[in-house]
Deep mutational scan, measured.
Amino acid sequence: TEEYTYTDKEKADRAAKEWANRGYTVTVTQDGPTYRVRVG
Rank of each mutant, 00 (worst) to 15 (best):
R22V: 06
Y4K: 04
T25A: 10
V26D: 00
G40D: 13
E3R: 04
W19A: 05
A16V: 06
T27L: 08
P33N: 12
V37P: 01
A15M: 09
D8N: 10
G23Y: 02
G40F: 13
V26M: 01
V37K: 00
K11N: 10
T34H: 13
R14S: 11
E10N: 09
W19E: 02
E2Q: 15
A15E: 06
G23M: 02
R36K: 13
T25Y: 12
A16I: 06
R38S: 12
Q30W: 06
Y4Q: 04
T1P: 10
T7K: 08
D31K: 05
G32V: 01
E2A: 14
V37N: 00
A12S: 03
T5E: 11
D8H: 05
R22A: 15
G40K: 13
T5I: 15
T27K: 06
E10Y: 09
Q30S: 08
T34M: 13
E10D: 13
K17I: 11
E18I: 09
D8W: 03
V28R: 02
T29I: 14
G32S: 02
T5M: 11
Y4R: 04
Y24V: 04
Q30E: 08
Y4S: 04
T1V: 14
Y35Q: 01
N21Y: 08
K11S: 15
G32P: 06
A20T: 09
G32W: 03
K9W: 13
E2L: 15
E18G: 05
T27W: 07
R38Y: 09
A12T: 03
K17T: 10
D8M: 05
W19I: 05
R36V: 15
T7D: 13
D8G: 03
V28E: 02
T34K: 09
T7I: 10
K17S: 10
K9P: 10
K17V: 09
W19R: 02
D31P: 01
T5Q: 08
K11M: 14
T7L: 11
Y24A: 04
P33K: 07
Y6R: 00
D13Y: 15
D8F: 03
R38T: 14
T34F: 15
Y24W: 06
R14M: 12
E3T: 11
D31L: 08
T27Q: 09
T34I: 15
E2V: 15
T25P: 07
T5R: 08
R22M: 15
R38P: 00
R36G: 03
E3I: 12
G32N: 01
N21V: 09
K11G: 10
E2D: 11
A15V: 10
T27E: 11
T1W: 15
Y35F: 13
E3S: 07
K17E: 15
E10W: 11
V39C: 04
V37H: 00
T7F: 13
Y35I: 08
D8R: 04
T5A: 08
W19F: 12
A20E: 14
E18D: 13
V28N: 02
E2P: 08
D31V: 12
K17M: 12
E3H: 06
D8V: 06
V39H: 02
K17N: 12
D8P: 01
K9N: 04
T29Q: 08
K11Y: 07
Q30N: 07
G40A: 14
R38L: 13
W19T: 02
D8K: 05
R22H: 12
T5P: 04
D13E: 14
T1K: 08
A20R: 15
V28D: 00
T7W: 12
E10I: 10
A16S: 05
D13W: 14
Y24S: 02
T29M: 11
Y24E: 03
Y35C: 01
T1H: 13
T7P: 10
G32I: 01
A16Q: 04
E3P: 04
A16L: 05
A20Y: 11
K9L: 08
V39F: 04
R36F: 07
P33H: 08
E2F: 15
A12F: 02
Y24I: 04
D31F: 08
E2N: 14
K9A: 08
Y6F: 14
Y35D: 00
T29G: 04
W19C: 12
V26E: 00
E2W: 15
A20F: 12
D31G: 03
K11P: 04
E3K: 04
G40H: 14
Y35N: 01
E3D: 08
K9T: 03
K9R: 11
V39M: 03
V26S: 03
N21A: 14
G23S: 02
T25V: 12
D13V: 12
N21R: 13
E3N: 05
G32R: 01
Y6S: 02
T29V: 13
W19D: 02
E10T: 09
K17L: 14
W19Y: 07
R38D: 05
T29P: 00
V37W: 00
G23T: 00
Y6H: 03
R22G: 09
G40I: 14
T7Q: 10
Y24H: 07
E3M: 07
T34W: 14
T5L: 13
V39P: 02
R36N: 06
A15K: 06
K17F: 11
T27P: 00
G23E: 02
Q30R: 10
E2T: 15
Y35W: 15
P33F: 07
K9G: 06
Y6D: 01
Y6N: 01
R22S: 10
W19S: 03
P33D: 14
N21Q: 12
T29A: 06
V37E: 00
G40T: 15
G32T: 02
E18A: 08
R14I: 12
T5S: 10
N21L: 11
T27F: 07
N21K: 14
Y24T: 02
V39Y: 02
T1Q: 11
Y35E: 00
V26I: 04
A16P: 00
K11Q: 14
V37T: 01
G40L: 13
G32D: 03
G23W: 02
K9Y: 10
N21H: 08
T29W: 12
R36I: 15
Y4P: 02
Q30V: 12
T1M: 13
K11F: 08
V26T: 05
T5G: 04
G23D: 03
D13L: 15
A12M: 04
D8S: 13
A15L: 05
Y4D: 03
R36Q: 06
A12W: 01
N21G: 12
A12G: 02
G23L: 02
E10Q: 10
T25S: 10
V37G: 00
R14Y: 09
D31A: 06
E10L: 10
A16R: 04
R38F: 09
D8Y: 04
V28L: 07
T25K: 10
V39W: 03
Y6E: 01
Y24R: 05
V37I: 08
R38N: 08
T7Y: 13
E2S: 13
D8A: 05
K9Q: 07
T27V: 12
A12R: 02
A16M: 06
V37D: 00
A12V: 03
G23N: 04
T27R: 05
Y6Q: 01
V26P: 02
K11R: 10
G40W: 13
T25E: 12
T5V: 14
T34C: 13
E10F: 09
K11H: 12
T7R: 10
P33I: 07
P33V: 07
E18S: 07
T29R: 06
D13S: 08
N21T: 10
A16W: 03
T25R: 09
A16K: 04
Q30T: 08
R14A: 14
R22L: 15
E10K: 10
E18T: 05
G23H: 03
V26Q: 00
R14F: 10
T34L: 15
D31M: 08
T7A: 11
Y35R: 01
G40E: 15
A16T: 04
E2H: 15
T25L: 12
R14H: 11
T25N: 11
D31I: 12
D8Q: 06
E10S: 10
T5H: 10
A20P: 01
R38E: 07
A15F: 07
D13A: 10
A15P: 00
Y6G: 03
T29N: 06
K9I: 06
Y24M: 06
A20Q: 14
K17G: 07
D31N: 07
V26F: 01
K9E: 05
T34E: 09
E10R: 09
